[in-house]
Amino acid sequence: MSIQVSHITKEYGVQKALDDVTFSIEKGEIVGFLGPNGAGKSTLMKILTTYLKPTEGTAAVNNFTVSEDDLNVQKSVGYLPEHNPLYLDMYVREYLMFNAEIYKIPKEEVEKIIERTGLTPEAHKKIEQLSKGYRQRVGLANALLHNPEVLILDEPTTGLDPNQLIEIRELIKNIGKDKDGKTVLLSTHIMQEVEAICDRVIIINKGRIVLDKKLKELSNSKEQIIEVEFDYRVETEALQQLKKVSKVENPSGFVYNIYFATDSDMRASVFDFAHDNGLKILQLHQKNTSLEKLFIELTTQK
């Protein structure tokens, strides 16, 4: 396993930022770490990068425990924090060369990283002259300098305009899919980010894991919801007699949410039910449970 988290709890006084968190990530996976602000995402990433120590539990990166083998963990992790710390008065190439000396990385490798992250046209500029998007590229280039096996990225696209956002997403996706198979843990609260980049999603809320699934499993969910409004009240028990119905809700008036345990289009079945029972359909919508809807449901539970 590239990342192994086992029963991690982190307390700040009486407040629990993380509460018995457990998950593992295999080599080469790109995992989206989703959660509302204050859910514990940054705290866990700081533990995985050895910046913080857990109150309870253990974590390991590339089989190095974060509490005992912190130097080896740091060597095998590339980290881009939420607030990207850069020396703004340094030139892009100068800044990367400076950091490369710390890792004893040859000059030619720095040039490869500059090219790989699309910084060649900006390498002669001071960092303070760069747009937010290019500053993020510098942060990514710095995280990649020592060719880490694991990349931990905390909100890497915050504050970017739509064009910059697409560019950084593609860059991260390409890095994760490279032949050397880097593992990427990407923290974000943007659903589209996960759907565009990741293989798997972990959702955290109030310090606890509330979902851990492959994106394919979510997109191939064998469930659909049909919202229908009739011109007359219907007993929910009658709707539950329809084929493949798993649940019926009556949120208001003559409106019903019918849950079908199938990905086949069941609108015709609802039309037939209305015809056979002398009902008129005033409106009908087919709804599929999206990642965004699932996120809202899981993170607004009391």
Rank of each mutant, 00 (worst) to 15 (best):
G32K: 00
I172W: 02
G32A: 05
V138L: 10
G181R: 15
S221L: 13
L80C: 12
Y259I: 13
Y51R: 12
G118C: 11
G159I: 05
M97D: 06
V61N: 06
L71H: 06
E101M: 15
A261M: 08
S219V: 08
E82D: 11
L44A: 09
L44N: 08
V73A: 14
S6Y: 09
L171N: 03
E108D: 05
V66P: 01
H189R: 06
K179M: 07
N62C: 15
V245F: 12
G13Q: 12
K216A: 06
V248K: 13
E29C: 11
A274R: 10
P85V: 09
E193G: 00
V248R: 15
V73Y: 11
E249G: 03
R135E: 00
I226T: 02
D272F: 04
Y87L: 15
T43K: 04
S252V: 11
G139H: 03
T65C: 13
E94K: 14
F23S: 05
L119I: 08
Q192R: 15
E82A: 15
L215D: 01
V77N: 04
T188K: 03
E170F: 04
L284V: 14
D69C: 12
K244P: 01
G28W: 12
T236A: 13
R233F: 13
E193N: 02
Q301L: 11
K107H: 05
T120G: 07
A141R: 04
Y12K: 08
E223V: 14
E292Y: 09
E94A: 07
Q4V: 13
G133W: 00
V21Y: 07
L119S: 00
N163V: 10
L96F: 07
I113V: 15
K46V: 06
D70L: 02
E193Y: 01
V201F: 03
A196L: 10
I166S: 09
N72V: 03
L298T: 01
E223S: 15
Q241S: 12
R233Y: 05
D212M: 08
P121F: 07
I166Q: 10
V210Y: 09
K182Y: 08
E111K: 11
V184D: 02
L218M: 14
A17K: 06
K173I: 02
D19F: 08
V77G: 07
V110A: 10
Y51P: 00
E297G: 10
F295N: 00
V210N: 11
I190G: 01
E111V: 06
L34G: 00
R93M: 10
V66W: 04
L165H: 02
L144P: 03
T117K: 14
K243V: 10
N250F: 13
Q4F: 15
K302V: 13
T157E: 00
D265L: 12
N62W: 02
Q240E: 11
E101V: 05
H83V: 13
E297H: 08
